[in-house]
Amino acid sequence: MSEKIYDLLYVEDEIDVRGHYVEYLERFFRNVYEAANAKEALEVYKNKKPAILIVDINLPDKSGIEFLQEIRKYDQTTKAIMLTANSDVQTLLNATELKLTKYLVKPVSRADLKEAIALAQEELSNYTVVANKIVKMKDSFCWDKKKQVLLHGNEQQHLTKKERELLTLLFSDINRIFSVDDIVYELWYDSNIYGDNALKTLIKGLRKKLPEGSIKNIFGVGYKIEI
């Protein structure tokens, strides 16, 4: 099992079962958050952005499937493990939008659970997955690549024309460091008003609208987006 570098959210309404598994899961994760229902789970998810979710299919307010469907509307990267009964398996197989790493039929043995979380951690460490349309950021922020809008939760954030153009450029290749010359050419190629401080001023203002550390300055090279 890898070192403790990921956070996990465990969603289960039975308090004794939840407490038992949270204690076990703390061996493998940096932080283990817990929730008793979908409403609590959504709040924890938005505030803590865990890398892995373990969700019981039967929750008191809405099903684990409905909870994950809500998450998948704007997040295709967080890993999800579903705890289910035999009778639910076909339903899960039909719910392809859930993008489950694994489903485990209850009662779940520790060996099966350990194998499932190891698989989720391996997927996280070996693959960088970015949604085609929505990129999840910290603190419940998302960038809609298709619409070119910044969202905080479900609320669209105001951006100036240049702020939108800069984010569109940075999110076009998340792993790339864009040089100052690259950015200037893309944003001001048809204008004579670009000054030495225009880009710095633009980035300073945009940083106030984003989670801390979202735009990283690589000294002597340029800028990149951090999610």
Rank of each mutant, 00 (worst) to 15 (best):
L53A: 01
L202M: 05
Y6W: 04
S191Y: 08
I57W: 02
Q90D: 14
A51E: 00
N154K: 15
L53C: 01
Q69L: 00
Q156L: 03
A51F: 00
L169H: 04
E155C: 03
H158W: 06
A118I: 03
Y185H: 08
E70H: 02
L93T: 08
T201P: 09
G64H: 06
V89N: 05
L187V: 04
T201D: 11
Y45N: 00
K145M: 07
I15S: 07
L9G: 13
E26W: 10
H152N: 07
H20S: 15
A35W: 10
L199I: 14
K4L: 00
F178Y: 09
K161T: 09
D144S: 08
K146P: 03
M82C: 04
D196A: 14
I174L: 01
L167D: 06
A111Q: 13
N192Y: 08
K136D: 08
D181F: 10
I71A: 02
K102F: 06
I203F: 04
A85D: 11
K79T: 06
I203N: 04
K62I: 13
L187F: 10
S172D: 03
K136F: 05
L93S: 07
K79V: 04
A80W: 06
S109C: 03
Q90T: 09
G222F: 12
V44T: 07
K62W: 05
L124H: 01
K106V: 06
I117P: 00
T128M: 14
I227N: 09
I218P: 13
Q76T: 15
L100T: 05
L202D: 03
I81Q: 04
V135A: 12
P107I: 11
K204C: 11
D75Q: 02
E14I: 15
F219M: 10
D182P: 08
L187H: 01
Q121G: 01
E97K: 06
I65G: 03
E212S: 05
F28S: 13
R30L: 15
N31H: 15
L59R: 00
A41Q: 09
I215N: 02
G213F: 05
K216S: 12
A41L: 07
I71R: 01
R110F: 08
P211H: 07
G19W: 12
V44W: 03
K209P: 04
I218G: 09
P107Y: 08
R27C: 14
L53N: 02
T77Q: 14
E97P: 05
N217Y: 14
E97M: 12
K106F: 02
K138S: 12
T168Q: 07
K145D: 03
K49A: 02
K145E: 02
L25S: 10
H152Y: 01
S191G: 04
E226Y: 12
K145Q: 11
A35Y: 10
E40T: 09
A85S: 11
A85N: 13
D112Y: 09
E12Q: 10
D16R: 15
L8N: 04
E122T: 07
Q148L: 08
L68R: 00
T78I: 13
P107G: 03
L98A: 11
S140R: 13
I57M: 03
I57F: 00
G195T: 15
K39Q: 15
S179L: 05
V129I: 15
S125Y: 03
V89W: 06
